[in-house]
Design a protein around this nucleic acid. Structure first.
Lengths: 218, 218
DNA sequence: TTCGATTTTTAGACAAGTCTAAAAATCGAA
DNA sequence: TTCGATTTTTAGACTTGTCTAAAAATCGAA
């Protein structure tokens, strides 16, 4: 059984390893968790001892199959709770992360199964990220920036790269939201901006910079 | 800001003090929390230092107004989450306590306000206990054992004294559930058992012992 | 390939929360 | 009211998770 702190480290390391593929450096973990390298060394020893990571001094860590399973369980819980907060409690998708960071540590497999059922077995969270199932399986729809969508093509706005308050305000102002159906009507050669139709009923212009921040999925 | 452990102590001490009325002994706290008296002494010093308790060596502790406020916030969260688990996620009311023990420590006043609204501002939790509002106010309906309800009177089954699996099984078997409307039709002099009508459509006999375990409210 | 910069680990300290064992205070019965 | 039993506190140790400072290992550029 992992502690609150151990779960946070494991989840972070898993994310940094890009799904358990790459080894992760001590400093990268320290930076991500706003902690110190010495603390990270202590913790990765603990997690390695528990079989979650494989670790060789000075060589960084790799997530073990056991660790991957643990990380995906935490991620599953996080994303289910985010879905609950947005769909049921009517939070805005940009304000749920901190609360889900707490909720993801609640220990009760039955609770998560019932929550999943209550939400109708969602496949994606409010940020467009996939929700792993009980076995850790999930399907990632390829996401690409709106700026790379070919003229005439359409897709769903599933995520944003930058979720700063300034950019969220921009989204609101232009009637853009996660889940919106976007159709690229025209590309302006001069400045790279796009003419985009939202849900077939509204047309806006999106700057090149904004289009690079909007992530689209089919 | 109180830690997880501090919150648990405060809540337990508040309950033992019967709403902040009585002073509470070190040993009583230790027994309730399955910990040792020495640990309790350490913790009550911390909580007294934070202004939650007033404490004089060897004299037990009293809950301060600040402490009462904190305890009622935790109790409010606990009971709202229990209500959510039973009404929305379809847990049985007897299996939600442990999960709510974890959920009650989630820190987000906005979350609790939204949860309260989502649930329709419930006044009582699935065990029949009152849910304090944001200011810590609540109204306790007087509860009394079914065995003391006069012949011909009726009320709602709001709680049980003993929630052992054996007694829960008994409830199920007899069609009894929290929220059932009960009407005392007859009292058997011989063994103190009662003839009770459930929701006007079913009549059962309840032994004296069972009737002492069933708590009724008008 | 060597030496300085960077990264990582070790060593030692600290805070929270727990424990055991022993000392101190209080309680209660004769 | 006194003395033994009980309760409570203190003292010291342990674990988890954190830190700083310093040592050790690795990396990279000349």
């Amino acid at each position: 059984m992992l502690s609150y702190a151990e779960e946070n480290y494991l989840k972070t390391i898993y994310h940094l390893s890009e799904g358990g593929l790459k080894e992760v450096s001590t400093n990268a973990i320290a930076e991500e968790l706003h902690t110190k390298a010495a603390s990270v060394t202590d913790m990765i020893k603990r997690l390695a001892h528990k079989g979650m990571l494989s670790y060789k001094k000075y060589k960084g860590v790799n997530v073990s199959p056991e660790g991957k399973k643990g990380a995906l369980t935490i991620i599953r819980k996080h994303r289910l709770w985010e879905t609950f907060l947005v769909e049921q409690l009517k939070f805005h998708w940009a304000e749920v992360h901190e609360i889900a960071e707490q909720l993801e540590h609640i220990k009760s497999p039955l609770l998560i199964r019932k929550l999943d059922e209550f939400l109708g077995f969602p496949k994606y969270d409010p940020h467009g990220d996939p929700i792993p199932d009980e076995d850790g399986e999930f399907t990632t729809k390829p996401k690409k920036p709106l700026s790379t969508v070919p003229l005439g093509d359409s897709g769903t706005l599933v995520s944003v790269k930058d979720d700063s308050p300034a950019f969220l305000k921009y989204l609101d102002k232009n009637g853009l939201y996660i889940g919106a159906h976007l159709n690229v009507l025209d590309k302006v050669e001069f400045d790279g901006s796009l003419e985009v139709c939202i849900d077939t009923d509204k047309t806006i212009f999106v700057s090149k910079k904004a289009a690079e921040n909007l992530l689209i999925s089919k």
